[in-house]
Design a protein around this nucleic acid. Structure first.
Length: 610
RNA sequence: GCCGACGUAGCUCAAUCGGCAGAGCAUCGACCUUGUAAGUCGAGGGUUGCCGGUUCAAUUCCGGCCGUCGGCUCCA
């Protein structure tokens, strides 16, 4: 691997810098905790981490780092840097390595893995035995394939920082012991470090959890429950607008709307096959008169039942059932994250039933929907991830039918290639019933999420005996495409808040116009103007409070209202407004009719510009 | 769920070593009648997340629970 990116000198240097800093951190930790067991310590985006097992305290609880420890570790790291210790490489045999890392059980496990193939230090699969090597600086020697810097003095002592401590399972498996992971960041110089820290601060300002509160979009209430958002009136508007958009677009694309209840008998989820795969994420059953009911974690089985409700001819297909369905999933408490990961959600859901020869067209029509929406929302930072089943054994996670997995994956791969849509393939990310194209995006603070999804289902139609009569008069099982281009309301709105930093385009803005009378003598004119706007279906409010105009403008700005219509003596006399846009630009003496027309036009065309 | 940190008024935050819980903003009222990001004065607002313990006395120390945050796991 090393040497393959030599042409990218800077990137290569940063990688060596980050990995080397991880090593001197481990050295410092061993000085402080000589009995610490080392796991792995790779370079990552913007820095590095290293996992440690510090053993147990007197009460038998795992020992952990304190913030003071981090400061002490940093101090010792700087001493190591000042000593300019050279990094020395050497190859070792498996036996030498085992000897060298006596008393380091995690290293022993890694050595065993390298010796017989299996997993490498980053958890990637490797074939057969791999030569082993170590890097040593001073008294610290670590199992490592490198590459590293020449000596510790190349690490700028004022350009690294230990960020935080977190728990992390050994090898990422929750059945394994939990280790202490120390994250750090390191840069080429002090300025780059400062810039990175500033960037993190800026990102926090557009975090949807902060803006959602500031802009009065949603709240969580302890008594309602974690992961169960309450939508304030301004959030309600966002939901209404997204649904309006989806209905328009889906109507054009030949969808029909259906509706299904929030709960169903256990039988339905047994039939669909969801229960064995999904039970952990479902709210427990409620039992009444001897019948068990579940609140729905997804809409699919209901739509399948709607399909099954009537006989179908090949002439009916494709059939596209759309519903903004409300689902409930019991996500584990630690997995909840603002609006991005919740327990109650409304999905922009639809199921497309089609014959096999219609698949490619239908699948790519959904991809086109994605692209249509992304253009509308100006979303350009995303990756389409082709999520396939696990290469080695299907296990309990996936429907056991290798042949259909390979067949449907091939269908998706071919469709995407024919459509010229770039994607990255990722094994072991599929739904239990088939492969999918997920759209991956990143939150303000850099966490990755699946926004939209487009899934093939080769399993459920057969389980529900769904059928249509083909040209030959025979019963045939349709394919099903599950899709959610607008995600859930929760995740979409969470994402859009961050994407726009709260500066929604006029059509989405919860409040589109705020009319600001300069003194209370102009309230009447302000209300007349507002009435006209409201009659044109514009969301408008008049700020008739007793504050000064400056304060009124400030509060409208803080709520990021796109248009402020300031009206005083001049305006009332001439039937005009002084238009102030959210970006601070102004148009004085604008004709009131022209203003109403402008706002209407921006909203009607879902314009990006104000 | 796991590891760690945190939880004070609607919001953002103070409160020395354990000694009567405070500020700004927001809200309400009065005054001011104002020209493009905060006018002035006043008032109300708290079981310091919840339960228990130690103490003459707990926001402060200890334990349990709930919630939030940073990660891990998981995921639309």
């Amino acid at each position: 691997m090393a040497g393959q990116h030599n042409h990218d000198g800077d990137k290569d240097f940063m990688h060596r810098l980050r990995h080397s800093t991880a090593h001197i951190m481990a050295e410092a930790v061993l000085q402080l905790y000589p009995d610490a067991k080392l796991a792995i310590g790779p370079a990552i985006d913007a820095g590095f981490y290293y996992d440690f097992d510090l053993g147990k305290d007197e009460q038998g609880r795992p020992k952990t780092f304190t913030p003071e420890d981090l400061a002490e570790i940093e101090k010792r790291m700087r001493q190591s840097i000042a000593a300019k210790k050279p990094f020395q490489y050497r190859e070792v045999s498996a036996d030498e390595a085992r000897q060298l890392f006596q008393g380091q059980p995690y290293k022993q496990e890694l050595i065993d893995g390298l010796a017989k193939g299996g997993l490498d230090e980053d958890g990637n699969e490797i074939e057969g035995p791999v030569p082993m090597s170590t890097y040593r600086h001073g008294n610290f020697e670590d199992l490592c394939r490198g590459p590293h810097l020449e000596h510790t003095g190349q690490i700028p002592p004022d350009a690294f920082k230990l960020m935080n401590v977190a728990g992390a399972y050994w090898r990422g498996d929750e059945h394994n012991p939990m280790l202490q992971r120390v994250y750090g960041t390191v840069w080429q110089n002090k300025k780059d470090l400062a810039a990175h820290l500033t960037m993190l601060e800026e990102a926090k300002k557009r975090d949807h959890r902060k803006l959602g509160k500031d802009l009065e979009i949603f709240v969580f209430d302890e008594e309602v429950g974690p992961g169960l958002p309450l939508w304030l009136p301004r959030g309600g508007v966002l939901i209404e607008e997204l649904e309006r958009l989806a209905k328009e677009v889906e109507e054009q694309a030949g969808y029909v709307r259906v509706r299904s209840p929030h709960l169903a008998k256990e039988d339905l989820f047994l039939h669909s096959g969801h229960l064995p795969y999904y039970e952990e994420s479902m709210y427990p059953a409620m039992e009444l008169e001897g019948v068990r009911y579940y609140v729905k974690p997804m809409n699919c089985p209901f739509h399948h039942k709607i399909f099954a409700a009537r006989p179908h001819s090949y002439r009916d297909l494709p059939l596209r059932f759309a519903e903004y369905g409300t689902c409930y999933r019991y996500e584990k408490s630690g997995e909840l994250f603002g609006l991005m990961r919740v327990r109650s959600m409304q999905m922009n859901d639809a199921h497309i039933y089609c014959a096999e020869d219609q698949f490619e067209r239908e699948f790519m029509a959904v991809i086109d929907l994605y692209l249509h929406y992304f253009k509308l929302f100006d979303i350009d930072k995303y990756v389409m991830r082709f999520s396939t089943h696990h290469k080695r054994g299907l296990g309990k996670k996936y429907i056991d039918n290798e042949r259909l997995w390979l067949k449907t994956e091939d269908m998706v791969r071919r469709a995407m290639s024919n459509g010229g849509i770039p994607f990255v393939e990722q094994a072991d990310e599929a739904a239990f019933y088939g492969p999918k194209i997920d759209v991956q995006v990143w939150s303000a603070i850099g966490r990755e999420f699946t926004l939209a999804t487009n899934q093939v289902d080769f399993a459920q139609p057969a389980r529900f005996s769904l059928a249509f009569t083909n040209r030959e008069g025979q019963e045939e099982t349709p394919l099903c495409i599950h899709r959610a281009p607008l995600s859930t309301h929760e995740r979409m709105i969470g994402f859009l808040i961050e994407h726009y930093a709260g500066n929604f385009p006029a059509w989405l803005a919860p409040e589109q116009v705020r009319v600001i009378p300069i003194t209370d003598a102009h309230n009447e004119y302000a209300y007349r103007l507002a009435d006209r706007l409201a009659a044109a279906h514009v969301r408008v409010q008049v700020d008739a409070g007793q504050e000064r105009m400056n304060a009124k403008i400030r509060s409208a700005q803080l709520l990021k209202v796109p248009y402020m219509a300031v009206v005083g003596e001049q305006e009332a006399q001439n039937n005009t407004v002084s238009l102030r846009k959210r970006d601070g630009s102004r148009q004085d003496g604008m004709d009131a009719d022209a203003f109403v027309a402008l706002v209407q036009e921006r909203i009607a065309t879902r314009a990006k510009e104000l």
